[in-house]
Measured scan of single mutants.
Amino acid sequence: DIIVVALYDYEAIHHEDLSFQKGDQMVVLEESGEWWKARSLATRKEGYIPSNYVARVDS
């Protein structure tokens, strides 16, 4: 799995977006363009995230 960590807070604009806080970790489910589908490890919610707001966690 690709794990990313939030670099900034993000408040969902559309209902399919995923809100998150700086430091939150998410599993990337699908990478396509600038918006990635991800699942929050904390809340288990899924939605689209702006890929420029996150960084990959080296395992």
Rank of each mutant, 00 (worst) to 15 (best):
A42H: 10
D1K: 12
E46Y: 07
F20W: 01
S51M: 11
D17T: 08
D58K: 10
Y10C: 05
E31Y: 14
V5Q: 07
I3A: 03
V57N: 06
D24M: 05
H14P: 02
D17L: 09
S32W: 12
P50H: 08
V28T: 03
D9S: 10
E16T: 13
Y53F: 11
L18V: 03
R39D: 00
V54G: 01
R44C: 15
A12T: 04
D1C: 15
G47E: 01
M26G: 00
Y53Q: 06
V5I: 13
K45G: 07
R39E: 03
I49A: 01
F20S: 00
H15S: 14
Y10F: 14
G33F: 05
K37A: 05
K22D: 02
Y53C: 09
I13Y: 09
P50R: 07
V28F: 03
K22S: 07
E31N: 15
R44L: 15
D17W: 14
S51F: 10
R56G: 06
V57K: 08
S19Y: 04
A55G: 07
K22Q: 08
A38Q: 01
S40D: 08
K45H: 09
Q25N: 08
A38K: 01
I49Y: 00
L18Y: 02
A42N: 11
V27E: 09
N52P: 05
P50D: 06
K45C: 11
G33A: 06
E34K: 12
Y10V: 02
H14G: 14
E16Y: 14
V5L: 07
V54P: 01
V4F: 09
D17K: 08
Q21F: 11
S40G: 04
F20L: 03
I2S: 09
L41E: 05
D58E: 12
D17C: 14
D24R: 01
G33Q: 05
D1T: 13
K37I: 09
Y8G: 04
D24N: 04
E34C: 15
H15D: 15
H15N: 13
I13H: 11
R44F: 15
A38G: 04
I3R: 07
V54C: 06
Y53P: 01
G47R: 00
K45W: 05
V5F: 08
Q21T: 11
E30R: 08
S59G: 14
S40W: 02
E30V: 10
T43G: 06
V28M: 04
A38H: 01
R44Y: 14
D1W: 14
W35P: 07
D58F: 10
